[in-house]
Computed example of a mutant assay.
Amino acid sequence: MQKHPFKSEGVRQELPVGGYIPQSFIDYPGLIAAVIFTVGCNFRCPYCHNPELVDPVRSGGNHQIPFHDVVRLVERNRSCLDAVVVTGGEPAMHESLPESLRTFRKLGLLVKLDTNGSYPDMIDLLLRERLVDCVALDIKAPLQSRRYEEVIGIPCSGAMMKCIERSCSLLLSSGIDVVFRSTLLKGIHASEDVDAMAAVSGNRLVLQRFRPDRTLRPLAAGVFSDGELHALASRFNCVICSFGL
């Protein structure tokens, strides 16, 4: 299994939670879900709109919510919920994720996971134990090391590309609900990139609009217009979405 950065030998770790929404009507389409934001990410995508989760120290501190407090809030609101969405950051980098999801399973809730796909062993475990009902995987660029490096802000090896390929394959064959998402950056992504990303996703790609108002760091990228997005979606059989899925 991939190394988990927040693993501490001999110490039971709780899922590090940096944010919580009691009820959302958009993060798990068709259902009412509590949304849990985990702290930490192995990527440094400059366009990320949750910088305080990706790099909490740089963003002014690491203000975490104890996981047991989150569970208590979910339990209190259980009668108004269908599901829990665990997003980030990158939830799959935490070895405590499976046990955390088991807690929500015991409450009878559906579970959706948002991930960048770089921890396929974790995804495999969650699928085998039936701990997730829906997974949204963000495809950053065509699965080539150089292209991924342009988007995720860190060096990217061939091994990383194989990890993401494996995650895509696991999800496509899983039988659960799967969404593949790509945030398009004008000046970085071209039409042929959308074609390549759609192919990796089994032609179920959702195009997301870049939100330049709040990012991890400044970047030289623009926003595709509505007309440009619709043209790309029509050409490559994609769906457009401007909010969480």
Rank of each mutant, 00 (worst) to 15 (best):
124 D>Q: 11
128 R>I: 02
184 L>S: 06
37 F>M: 11
120 P>R: 00
86 V>C: 01
125 L>M: 08
155 P>M: 00
188 I>W: 01
13 Q>E: 15
151 V>A: 11
76 R>C: 11
31 L>N: 06
75 E>W: 08
6 F>K: 07
87 T>V: 08
232 L>M: 03
209 R>Y: 15
87 T>K: 11
71 V>T: 12
200 V>D: 10
216 L>E: 10
57 V>T: 14
139 I>G: 04
12 R>F: 10
178 V>C: 01
110 L>E: 13
221 A>M: 04
112 K>V: 13
16 P>T: 01
174 S>L: 05
188 I>Y: 06
148 Y>D: 12
35 V>T: 15
122 M>F: 03
99 E>V: 05
235 R>W: 00
57 V>M: 11
152 I>R: 08
135 V>G: 06
97 L>Q: 06
158 G>A: 06
93 M>P: 06
228 E>A: 01
244 G>C: 09
133 D>V: 12
148 Y>Q: 08
122 M>N: 04
143 L>S: 09
47 Y>A: 13
226 D>N: 03
221 A>Q: 07
191 S>H: 06
43 F>W: 14
61 G>H: 03
65 I>P: 00
220 A>R: 02
94 H>K: 05
192 E>Q: 06
223 V>D: 15
27 D>R: 01
81 L>R: 05
187 G>F: 03
21 I>P: 00
156 C>V: 15
189 H>K: 04
93 M>N: 10
220 A>V: 04
104 F>H: 10
219 L>H: 11
88 G>M: 12
146 R>T: 13
161 M>S: 01
71 V>H: 04
172 L>A: 10
17 V>Q: 09
239 V>F: 03
101 L>Q: 10
100 S>Q: 02
76 R>W: 04
78 R>N: 03
158 G>F: 14
86 V>L: 07
185 L>P: 00
179 V>N: 12
162 K>G: 00
219 L>D: 14
185 L>H: 08
190 A>Q: 02
218 P>T: 03
42 N>R: 15
217 R>E: 02
12 R>N: 04
35 V>K: 06
210 F>V: 07
30 G>R: 06
236 F>A: 15
204 R>W: 05
172 L>Q: 14
173 S>C: 02
154 I>F: 09
213 D>G: 08
93 M>E: 02
137 L>I: 01
147 R>Y: 15
134 C>A: 13
84 V>H: 05
169 S>F: 03
231 A>W: 02
9 E>C: 04
117 G>F: 10
235 R>E: 11
72 R>K: 04
52 E>Y: 12
192 E>L: 06
173 S>R: 11
166 R>M: 09
122 M>I: 06
48 C>R: 10
14 E>G: 05
237 N>R: 10
212 P>L: 04
202 G>F: 05
44 R>K: 14
232 L>T: 07
99 E>M: 14
132 V>E: 08
131 L>N: 00
48 C>Q: 12
202 G>Q: 11
242 S>M: 00
30 G>A: 13
213 D>Y: 10
239 V>M: 03
166 R>A: 12
30 G>M: 06
